[in-house]
Design a protein around this nucleic acid. Sequence first.
DNA 1: CGCCCAGTTGATCAAGTGATCAAGTCGGCG
DNA 2: CGCCGACTTGATCACTTGATCAACTGGGCG
Lengths: 192, 192
Amino acid sequence: MPSTTSAASPRLSGPERRAAILAAAIELALSEGLASLTLRRVGERAGVASGLVAHYVDGMDALVAEVFTRISREERAEVASIDGVAALVRSLTDGSRDAVTLVWVQAWAQAPANAALAAAVRAEMDAWQRTLEERLREAGADDPAPVARVLLGMVDGVNAHALAGWRDRAEHAPLLLRSLEAMLGREAGSLG
Amino acid sequence: MPSTTSAASPRLSGPERRAAILAAAIELALSEGLASLTLRRVGERAGVASGLVAHYVDGMDALVAEVFTRISREERAEVASIDGVAALVRSLTDGSRDAVTLVWVQAWAQAPANAALAAAVRAEMDAWQRTLEERLREAGADDPAPVARVLLGMVDGVNAHALAGWRDRAEHAPLLLRSLEAMLGREAGSLG
DNA sequence: CGCCCAGTTGATCAAGTGATCAAGTCGGCG
DNA sequence: CGCCGACTTGATCACTTGATCAACTGGGCG
């Protein structure tokens, strides 16, 4: 199981090294959370001295913000190929993306202390909002903006709760879909 | 505006001092978040040496867990007098409890690193679940458990998003209520 | 071949953390 | 009044963090 990590570092060009460090930070954040990003831990993961991480990054706050953005953007890309709001909602609540949920929760928690991260969080929320609005419009919604906003909150909240190790999540998707139908003024089962 | 803080400490009995320290920690958590709880900051707020805080507390993890529990329990008590699910949902999403929302979000984020806090979070979620189930049963729900679970997630998620400084929250309550009606199989406006 | 500089190291700093404890202080009981 | 023990202090330890920087290295260009 080879990985981007821990290959005894041959000397890389500046941009290559920077990319490798960022990749290591992303892996680390996904496996242990945003809070585990320290100069030393990232350096260790990248097979590199802590000083080199500092050299290629404009402060840890900026690194954290960039890692968050990359992870969220990647998640949106993965989900882009899913057809239909219903399938999308089901995929977002099936637990397959718990690592990303933890990153989101930690980003909210850290945002008050990290302005760059706060800005990144708002930007990614806007992007998700646009994605969801578009899907809802495809599904025939007249005024998708507020519905998208609340749907986004619902999905994140339900996922955060599930992350706390809280019982069954199987019932989540059907109830969320029923809610979505109601917010759109549709009949029960029409998104099915 | 007198407060429990910073009165030049006269010597208190053990239990009194412990209560004063806990009260200071709760104030601090509500104004600056759970993450701001350190021995020194709590001591400063309570007008007491850091060593005394350590003396009356079984480790910071335990303090954080206890502060979280007290804040959540207090919120449930405040909300206990509100009649009807609809009014309850409106109250929980009107932004008047943002400080508590931040505490919840930070509790989720810290739970993986603090077992006592994780247990406290689960216990408080269970308590909220019971509260909501009861309200839903009063409102005539047949099977309130899954609906309560999802409703709780929705409320927390929508609040967390609003916390990130994200636009209008005025539309949240009506849409959540419409969702709730749908999950309960009611007509639109029947909870109104 | 040998220089040169981009890439890299790791020791070091200041700041902040939780925890510990010898020492001091004060109030109430004898 | 005087003392004893509970309450309280604050210095101190070991550790972690982000950041800095003098020194080292090695690949490629002249």
